[in-house]
């Protein structure tokens, strides 16, 4: 066929509303109030983000909640050099596992250093909150290097 091939953008989009349940409801309500909450397992480990069950034993977690962070340590990271439209920042950033002070597990979030050379496993970071919090993971805009924080 002499004509050019037909081609068109096709967008599939859907917003899911997810019921949180008691445990994550507390976590997200905490974020709305600018607090990062963890839950203690029977063995005494603090899980952040919180879970209903201890991933090591399968036992229900306790009613013992505590605020952690807002500082923590980067345990692992991956640099996103060319962010796409739906990424949390419109400039290069890192997805990272961050173990907040007072927590025994790591939370996946964003580290905003501006440049990959400023990223380092073990670096200390601090949560930067959104101007307005609504009870969503992006109430924390990103984690940024803690001034004078150095490395763990």
């Amino acid at each position: 066929m002499a004509d050019e091939l037909l081609s068109a953008p096709h967008v599939l989009e859907y917003d899911y509303r997810r019921s949180l349940g008691d445990t994550l409801s507390r976590f997200f309500t905490g974020l709305r109030d600018r607090e990062i909450l963890g839950v203690k397992t029977k063995a005494g480990r603090v899980l952040v983000p919180p879970a209903e069950y201890d991933p090591e034993t399968g036992e229900a977690t306790t009613e013992d909640w505590s605020a952690v962070g807002p500082e923590g340590v980067v345990k692992s990271w991956a640099w996103v050099a060319e962010p796409l439209g739906r990424h949390p920042l419109d400039r290069p950033f890192a997805f990272a596992l961050i173990q907040l002070d007072g927590a025994d597990t790591a939370l996946t979030h964003v580290v905003d250093t501006g440049d990959e050379s400023a990223m380092q496993t073990g670096m200390r970071v601090t949560a930067k909150w959104a101007d307005e919090t609504v009870g969503a993971i992006r109430d924390i805009v990103a984690f940024v290097p803690t001034p004078g924080g150095g490395s763990a």
């Binding site: 859907y14 949180l20 993971i137």
Partner: peptide, 12 residues
């Protein structure tokens, strides 16, 4: 906060 909205989107 009882629920969150998680958007999904794919562009072809």
């Amino acid at each position: 906060i009882e629920s969150i909205v998680t958007p999904t989107r794919t562009e072809y």
